[in-house]
């Protein structure tokens, strides 16, 4: 049984984790300015699976907001792109998790989130910021990296869930994490 305080602290923990991932990404050199791996989405997915949709929303929105404060991009064009992408991704992922009739693993949900993220960003960039619909030329260059990133993030989250889900759900301490070769864990 999860107590509100426990859920609150774990949401905060995952928000901090997502924030660190987000800041780590801004340091990474990128061949294409828009091609970020989306490591922060790991935090959203973990929150969605371990704590529920409300926590996933909180983790995402707080990460976008606090991240923009830290890198000084609050209300920049990039901030609106982040916000639109993050909101679209978390909306699609929570909907698939809730109404997907158990037909999607975390990898499929991660991919759907990546797709929603790219599409929302391109729509906002095309309609609001650039104001030219020729921005669709960028779509392939955004979608292929996003496909790759979505799979990587999904597999990473799957492995993380396998390792920490039993502990978080049972309320045990995270210090008792099982070794990697233990097979009778939850996938």
């Amino acid at each position: 049984m999860m107590f509100p305080a426990q859920r609150l602290t774990r949401t905060a923990l995952l928000t901090g984790f997502g924030l660190v991932m987000f800041l780590f990404e801004t340091i990474l050199p990128r061949p294409l300015p828009w091609a970020k791996p989306g490591l922060a989405n790991i935090a959203t997915l973990l929150a969605l699976y371990l704590l529920g949709a409300a926590s996933a929303w909180a983790v995402t929105l707080l990460r976008v907001l606090l991240g923009s404060f830290i890198i000084g991009a609050f209300m920049n064009p990039g901030f609106w792109l982040s916000l639109a992408g993050g909101m679209a991704a978390v909306a699609v992922m929570t909907a698939l998790k809730r109404y997907g009739a158990n037909q999607f693993s975390v990898i499929g949900i991660s991919l759907a989130g990546a797709l929603a993220h790219v599409l929302a960003q391109i729509i906002v960039a095309g309609l609001v910021i650039v104001g030219r619909w020729e921005i669709v030329y960028l779509l392939p260059a955004m979608l292929w990296p996003a496909l790759f990133a979505g799979v990587v993030i999904g597999v990473t989250t799957l492995l993380l869930l396998e390792q920490i889900a039993p502990h978080l759900l049972s309320g045990n301490s995270l210090r008792n994490i099982k070794p990697m070769n233990d097979m009778d864990s939850h996938w």
Binding site: L96, G100, N102, Q103, F104, S105, I107, G108, I109, L111, A112, A114, L115, L119, L139, P140, L143, W144, A146, L147, G150
Partner: peptide, 15 residues
């Protein structure tokens, strides 16, 4: 899960 393949194909179709 089966839905994963569907999402993957949808992604490739979009690209």
């Amino acid at each position: 899960r089966p839905g994963d393949g569907f999402i993957f194909m949808l992604f490739v179709a979009f690209a």
